[in-house]
Design a protein around this nucleic acid. Structure first.
Length: 777
DNA sequence: TCTATATGAGTTTTT
DNA sequence: CTCATATAGA
């Protein structure tokens, strides 16, 4: 028990064992902040704090997963499960499921992803007859998103002349109307977008003091990782929840703030000491991760930022090799350099693939890297990128499921009403939308009574619409009794989706089918993990929520020994022996979109700082003289960030190609470009990002692929309680629903069910055979 | 009124 | 290159 504490140095020990009160830990890169956080949670639990009373918040799924794993190692998986730990969005989505009814939301509200939100805005802009070149959906979306993140409601917007003025100046005077229409339409659709999950939580906690009190009492100890990345909305939630007990511990590093683009506000961390009384401040400045050269290089870069806290990150580690800078001719060459460097290092040092990471600014850069790695037969895995759940075919299936659960979900309806084609065209949909807006009814409600509705639609189309309603209703009936897997399988078969995908015999089409199959497998695993809940009605809703907030279908399948490829954003919090930072070119990194203001540029610089400090032993910086963009070779120049590093930490390699540079020559002359232009061809399995493409032999379609979540739930066969051990009136604890009281017990043998009234989720009937309940005094 | 084809426009980063 | 929307054809 004490053993883990002895692994901490003095600076880390102090915050770890401060049990109560507000505290802030300013933690430099690699200074062991995650260790402090995880050990602190373990310490709290050892001090008798109930895991149910601890809330730990992170910003990305990746970070949440990382932290969960580490905590489970110390306190054990079963105890760790009782912690409320996850991203802000996922934790508050769960709370809103329970409490959303206060705000007029159905408990099975839909979560709109970016795509849904943007489509809705697009159609609002069109309906309002606005110029779509002036009102670009993406810009409108990010503008509205930033209002929401700053807690500027529609009402507040119209009361704020400055904001309205700013939008008018940007030639978008009707922004407020769009905002208003968007909010109304979301609400009517029973949908929340990502920002709503935070905004509505705030509304809930402000408008309903009893709800606030309940959660304040529950979350007696709150820990927030990466506090520098909180936006205003998140900040207020944390403050409200922590207000009663003031046991709040935030950890962050202003130098690693890289989410300003989604509203992160550095002043939250800078002003923390003003928000609470007697704040203890701790600083972790010793870097345990990286060599002197890497720390030195990173420090010399971040020096160029004006806005920063005084903090000296230092290390007692070895000097190590210098940071290597490498120039390539094209992005293809860059990939080949990286692949061969990895290969050579593996040969000489005998290290595993997992010692390497390739980090880039934009997701699209992964392609050149993938290709080169595949050629060298180096296994790799891409993290992030286009999420599995955002693929067209997956969204098609889930749109049906969403509609079954929540027929008001307008975006889902529009997606599937004519897919597969049923002869219901745009004109019909437009008329329906107009009628829906005028009547205040949802489209589905109109469709249910299409004969009596006063809409100009011909009889033939009306019949098609009726058929569609009948189809969806039949699914809804099935959903009453069938589990999510059986339903989803039935839907894909009977809606015509499978037939539609089957039409396409191209490799992409085949991949699509496989993806759908994989989705079904995922649902199956999820359902099996949920078997304890006797009324299976809810599990579809839960599955949909999970996937709405998940980015990666990250199981531990495939070879765990792979090179990691990811954006720098998603690499935060991770570390690797060898790190390649690629594409260090002006307009790419720093991004062309981020060079308008000093603060934008400084965020890019912090991003570079984050990238560099991921490396433990060796860092490589690469750039190319020209790069393919939209199929065209475009010239580029080296990033300013390379120049900003103090020379003493750098080892600038002048490649042999340097002497051969000649615009007359194409890359082929060097003989290192593959004879056929593979680059332009689609890889055979391009959609399967989560597989190790370097080993196509490994392509195990038939092997069941498990969603991490489900397999986690299933794996530990804990001692389940059976009827004999449980009686009416007992108090029990459940992983998800919290504490509860047993109301009744029914059934016999393996089918004993208990009805339990939980603090979160209300009354549930659980099958004791599966339910992992714990008796509490 | 719906469907297939051409054209054209846009690429940060995440929940 | 890869999406999303305009236009012609059925």
């Amino acid at each position: 028990m004490e053993k883990y504490l002895s692994q901490l140095n003095e600076a880390q020990y102090a915050p770890t064992v401060q049990k109560d009160g507000p505290m802030i830990i300013i933690a430099g890169a690699g200074s062991g902040k995650t260790r402090v956080l995880t050990y602190r949670i373990a310490y709290l639990m050892n001090q008798g704090v109930d895991a149910f009373n601890i809330l730990a918040l992170t910003f990305t799924n990746k970070a949440a997963k990382e932290m969960k794993g580490r905590i489970a190692e110390i306190v054990g998986a079963s105890e760790a499960k009782n912690l409320w730990m996850g991203t802000f969005h996922s934790v508050f989505a769960k709370i809103l499921r329970f409490e959303g009814h206060h705000l007029g939301y159905p408990s099975n509200f839909t979560i709109y992803d970016t795509q849904d939100s943007q489509k809705l805005m697009g159609s609002i802009i069109r309906e309002m007859g606005l110029d779509k070149d002036l009102y670009k959906t993406k810009q409108v979306y990010s503008r509205i998103s930033s209002y929401k993140n700053s807690l500027i409601t529609v009402k507040a917007y119209f009361n704020n002349p400055e904001l309205m003025e700013a939008d008018a100046m940007a030639r978008r005077p009707r922004m407020g109307e769009i905002y208003q229409a968007y909010v109304e339409r979301c609400f009517k659709a029973g949908a929340m977008d990502f920002d709503d999950l935070l905004l509505r939580t705030n509304e809930l906690l402000t408008r309903f003091p009893s709800v606030l009190a309940q959660y304040q009492d529950k979350f007696r100890y709150i820990l927030v990782d990466e506090y520098q990345d909180t936006n205003h909305s998140q900040y207020l939630i944390v403050r409200a929840l922590a207000d009663r007990f003031q046991n709040i511990c935030v950890v962050g590093d202003d130098a690693q703030s890289i989410y300003a683009f989604r509203g992160a506000n550095i002043s939250n961390i800078l002003n923390f000491q003003k928000d609470y009384e007697d704040v203890k401040m701790y600083r972790l400045e010793q870097n345990y991760r990286s060599t002197k050269n890497i720390v030195g290089a990173a420090n010399s870069v971040i020096e160029h930022n004006q806005t920063k806290l005084d903090k000296i990150v230092w290390t007692a580690n070895v000097e190590g090799p210098k940071v290597q800078v490498h120039r390539s001719l094209t992005d293809g060459d860059e990939g080949r350099f990286v692949a061969s460097a990895i290969w050579e290092t593996k040969m000489t040092d005998h290290v595993p693939n997992s010692d390497f990471a390739i980090l880039y600014r934009t997701n699209s850069q992964s392609r050149a890297m993938e290709e080169a790695l595949r050629k060298r037969n180096i296994p790799y895995r891409i993290y992030g990128g286009l999420s599995f759940y955002q693929r067209k075919e997956i969204k098609d299936v889930t749109a049906y499921l969403r509609l079954i659960l929540n027929p008001s979900d307008e975006e889902a309806l529009k997606r599937v009403i004519n897919y597969p084609a049923r002869g219901i065209g745009q004109t019909t949909i437009d008329r329906l939308m107009v009628a829906a807006n005028e009547s205040g009814k949802t489209i589905f409600e109109l469709l249910e009574n299409i004969d009596s509705a006063n809409i100009n639609i011909n009889t033939g189309t009306k019949n098609k619409l009726k058929d569609f309603v009948t189809l969806i209703k039949s699914y809804q009936v099935m959903n009453q009794t069938a589990n999510a897997f059986d339903l989803a399988e039935y839907v894909t078969k009977t809606s015509g989706l499978i037939k539609e995908f089957n039409k396409d015999n191209t490799p992409e089409g085949v991949t699509r089918l496989e993806n759908v199959e994989e989705l079904l497998n995922g649902i199956k695993d999820f359902v099996e993990g949920q078997m304890e809940i006797a009324d299976s009605k809810d599990n579809l809703a839960e599955f949909l929520e999970d996937i709405a907030l998940a980015t990666d279908l990250d199981g531990d399948k495939g070879d765990p020994d792979h090179v990691a490829l990811m954006t720098i954003h998603s690499s935060k919090g991770l570390e690797f022996s060898n790190v390649f930072i690629v594409g260090l070119e002006e307009d790419l990194f720093p991004s062309a979109m981020s060079m308008n203001t000093r603060s934008e540029l400084e965020e890019e610089r912090r991003l570079f700082y984050v990238a560099l400090t991921r490396a433990e032993k060796k860092a490589y910086l690469t750039y190319a003289l020209s790069r393919y963009r939209w199929g065209k070779l475009v010239d580029s120049e080296p990033s300013r960030f390379i120049e900003e590093i103090d020379d003493q930490f750098l080892d600038i390699i002048t490649p042999i190609e340097e002497r051969r540079i000649n615009p007359m020559l194409s890359a082929d002359i060097f003989g290192d470009t593959p004879p056929n232009k593979v680059r332009f061809k689609k890889p055979v399995q391009p959609k399967f990002k989560k597989k190790d493409k370097a080993k196509p032999v490994n392509f195990e379609i038939s092997a069941p692929k498990k969603l991490k979540k489900a397999s986690e739930i299933k794996a530990p066969a804990e001692a389940n309680l059976f009827g004999g051990e449980l009686t009416v009136g007992n108090r029990v604890k459940h992983l998800k629903f919290g504490r509860g009281e047993v109301l009744s017990i029914e059934g016999k043998g393996g089918d004993v069910k208990a009805e339990i009234d939980f603090e979160f989720g209300g009354k549930k009937k659980l099958l004791l055979r599966f339910a992992k309940l714990e008796l509490i005094g």
